[in-house]
Design a protein around this nucleic acid. Structure first.
Lengths: 232, 232, 232, 232
DNA sequence: AATGAATGAGCGTTCATTCAT
DNA sequence: AATGAATGAACGCTCATTCAT
C-alpha cells in the first residue's frame, strides 16, 4: 500500500559506483532535505516557509530540492506522511510479547500517547497544515490514520471478545484514546503547565479504559493495570 | 478586557449624519466584510483566500477593507476571535436557571458540544489558522479560550464543593470535556460516519462525568442525568 | 467570430466615472502594454523578452500586465493576432470601388504586399514565434490566416468566372501571391539589397498573374494593368 | 570556409587507441548527440527543448554534451548549419551529367524542392529558431544560404547566356524558386491539403520558369521540359 | 465613504552549466 | 571518456497594500 503512496520523483540510480553506495548517498540527501523541511515547517508553518529556507536548513541549493521532491507541496505531504507513519511504527512494536488483551490495549494506548508526546510540534503541524494538501493527498493521509487507528480498534475488539467490555463501539472507544492523545499535543501550551505527561496519561487513560469496562473487566484491570504504580 | 483586544482601525465618524445612524451603517459594512472573510476562510483557508476574494464575497471593493481592518491578518484575528466568543456566549446562557451543580456541569458541557457541532467548519478553521497570527494575537486568543474554559472549571468546582467528585484536577476534567468536544470537530470527517452527534455527546460525556464522580456523585448523577433519556 | 477569439481578461468597468472615460483609459493602458510587448518581441523575440522588459517598455509595473492579459503567452497571442488582423483590414479597404475582376485581384495582391512591407519585422516575428503558442491558439491564427487568404481566393474566382484564367486552383494561385509577399518579409535581409519593394512587387506579381491568365485574360490584363507604369 | 564555421570544441584525442579508431568513436558520439538534438528541436522547438531532453534522446549524459558542443546554442547552430548544408549537397549532385542550361535550371530547382519536401520539419525549424543565434552565427548561416542560392543563380545565368531569358535579375529569379520551395515547407500545414507535392512543384515551377523565358526560351522549354509528363 | 487601478516585493520553479568521481 | 548530482541565477506570476479620484 505504501508504494502507491509515493509519487515523489526519486533520482534514478543507474551505474557509476555500486548501487548501494549511490543509493545511500541519495537517501542521505533526501533525508537532509526532509529534515530541513520538517524543522522549518514546525517552526514557521508551511506557508511561511520558503523553499529557500528549506534549502538553507538542509544545507543544499534550492534547485536540488526539486530533484528529490516534486514541489513544495510534495515535501509537505511526505513530511506529514512520515509523522503519521511514526505512529504506525511505534504502536505495534509496543505490543510485541504482550499477551493479555487488556494489557495490550493499555500498551497500545501508552505507545500512542508517547509518540505524540515525543513529537508534539510535529503533531500540531500535521493538524494545521494537512489542509494545504490536495484532496487526493489528504485522502491518503486519512487512510493512513485509519490504519493506525485500526491497531487500537483491534485491541479493543480483543478485550470485547475476552468479555471485559460494556457495550461500546470499538471505533468510538479508540477515538477516545486517540483524541485524548492528540489533545495533549494540541493543548500542550496549557496542559503542560497544569499536569505532567505521565499524570495526564495515567488519569486520562484511566477514565477512558474504566469507562469501557464491565465488572469482569474492572476486576481484570485491577490485576493488569499498566497505568498506575510504575513508570509508563 | 475586550477593549485591549481590538487594535483594529475603525472609521472615525466625523459629522454630517447623526453619530448613531453613521455608526449603524459603519457597523453593517464591517459585518459585511467580516462575513465575507469568514465564509472565504472557512471554505479555502486563510492563505488561499485573497483580499480580492473577500471583497467579492462581501460585495465591496478591496480598498474598503482597509478602512475597517488593519490588514488581512487582522481580519483573520477578528474572525477567530468571534468564533471563540461564540463559545463564551453560549455556555453561560445555557446555565441560566440551572441550579444543581451536576446539572450545571452537564448543561455547560452540552452547550459547549453544541456550539462546536454548529460550527464544525469554523472550529477546524480556528485550529488551523491561528498559527498564522502574531504571537501577541495568539496570546489574546489563548486567554479568551481560558476564559471560556473557566466557565466549565467553575462548574466542576461547584461539584467538588458539593462533594460529588473524586480527586481530579478541575482544569484537567474541563479539558476532558473541551477536548472531546473539539475532537468532534477535528475528526468530524470520520466520526460522523460512525456515530450521531447526540450519541457521541451522550456516550463521551457520560464516560467523562462518571470518571470524575465519587459514589455520592454517582448517586446524585442517577437522579440528575441530563444526558440520557431525552433529547439534548 | 472575433469575439470567441479573445479569452483575455479585461478589467471590468463598472462605475465611478463615466463608462466611456474609464473604458478609454483602460483601452489606452491595454494599448500601452500591447505596444511595449510588440516592440520587445520584434526586437528580441518572445523567449528573450522578459515580462519586466515589456513592463519597462510600456512604462507600467509588471503586475499590471496581468490585469490586462492572462499571461505572457496571451500577450504573444494577441500581438500575433493583431498582426494578422492588419492584413485582414487592409485588403478589403483596397478593393472598395474597384469593379473589374482583374483589377480587384491586382489591388488585393498589392494591398497584401504593402501590409507586409510596412510590417516586415512583425511578419518575421509572427512566423517565428507562433510556434510558441498553444495548439488551440495556433488553430485560431491559422483560421484567421485562411480568412485573409479567402479575400484573395474570391478575387481569383471572380477572374475565373470572367473567363480570364487558365485551369489553376484558386487557392494555389492565392498562395503564390501570399507566399511571394511573405518572402519579401522573410528574405528582406537579402532582397532589399537586390531590388526595391516596388520592383519586387511589379515583377513578382507580374509573373504570377500572367501565369494564371489565358489569352483572354492576357488581353484584358494589357488594358487593366495596375502593376506597371504608375506608382503602386 | 567550413573551417571558420566551427568553433565547436572537439574532444582532444590523446592516446591509448589508434587515432582513427578514437576519432571514429568520437564522431559517432557527436552524431548521436546531434541527432538527438535535431529530433528534439524539430519536435518541440529550441527553447522548449532542455539539454536533459537532448541527452535522453541521444542516450548519453547531459554532461557529455558539453564535451562535444560548447553550449546549447552551439548545438542549435550546428543543427541549422547541417540543414542548410543538405541543400548545398543535393543541388550539385542533381546537376551531374545534365548539360542543357534550361534542363540544369529545372534539375536544380527540382532538387531544391525535394530537399525541402524531405525535410519540411527541419526547414520550418531552421526558419523559426535561427533568430535565437548570435549575430555572428546568423551571418554565417546567411552566407551559407547565399552559397546555395548561387548554385541556382549560376543556372539562371547559363540560361541567360544561352539567350533563353527575358530581362530578369538572376538573383530575383532564383529567389522565386527558392521562396516557392520554402513556402511548401512553411505553409505545408495547408498546402498539403490542397495539392500534392508533385503537382505543387510542377505548377509553381512552371509559372516561374515560363515567367523568366523569352520566346526562344519558351521554344526550347517545350523540348526540354523536366516538369511535365514524367515523375520528378 | 468608496473605488479599483497600480505597484513591486517576493515566491516557486526551471534549467544550462559545472565538476567531483 | 562519461556520469549525473549539484548549483544558483533568472524568470513568470501573485497578491497585499496604497492612493488618486
Amino acid at each position: 500500500m505504501d508504494q502507491t503512496v509515493l509519487p515523489t520523483r526519486r533520482p534514478a540510480r543507474k551505474s557509476g559506483t555500486t548501487p548501494t553506495r549511490r543509493h545511500r548517498k541519495t537517501e542521505q540527501r533526501r533525508q537532509q532535505i526532509f529534515s530541513g523541511a520538517l524543522s522549518c515547517f514546525e517552526q514557521k508553518g508551511y506557508h511561511e516557509t520558503t523553499v529557500a529556507d528549506i534549502a538553507a536548513a538542509a544545507g543544499v541549493s534550492s534547485g536540488l530540492i526539486y530533484q528529490y521532491f516534486n514541489d513544495k507541496r510534495d515535501l509537505l505531504f511526505q513530511v506529514i506522511l512520515e509523522i503519521l507513519e511514526a505512529y504506525n511504527r511505534d504502536v505495534p512494536s509496543a505490543l510485541i510479547g504482550v499477551k493479555d488483551p487488556l494489557e495490550r490495549l493499555q500498551a497500545a494506548a501508552i505507545a500512542y500517547y508517547k509518540v505524540i508526546d515525543q513529537r508534539v510540534q510535529a503533531t500540531l503541524f500535521a493538524y494545521r497544515e494537512s489542509a494545504s494538501l490536495e484532496k487526493e493527498q489528504i485522502a491518503i493521509l486519512k487512510s493512513k490514520e485509519l490504519q493506525t487507528n485500526q491497531l487500537i480498534v483491534d485491541c479493543v475488539l480483543e478485550c470485547e471478545r475476552a468479555g471485559f467490555c460494556m457495550d461500546v463501539d470499538p471505533e468510538l472507544a479508540t477515538y477516545w484514546i486517540i483524541n485524548s492523545a492528540h489533545a495533549w499535543g494540541l493543548k500542550n501550551w496549557r496542559l503542560r503547565k497544569v499536569i505532567s505527561f505521565e499524570d495526564y496519561a495515567r488519569k486520562t487513560l484511566g477514565v477512558i479504559i474504566r469507562g469501557m469496562l464491565n465488572d469482569a473487566g474492572e476486576a481484570h484491570f485491577s490485576r493488569h493495570n499498566l497505568l498506575d504504580g510504575r513508570p509508563l
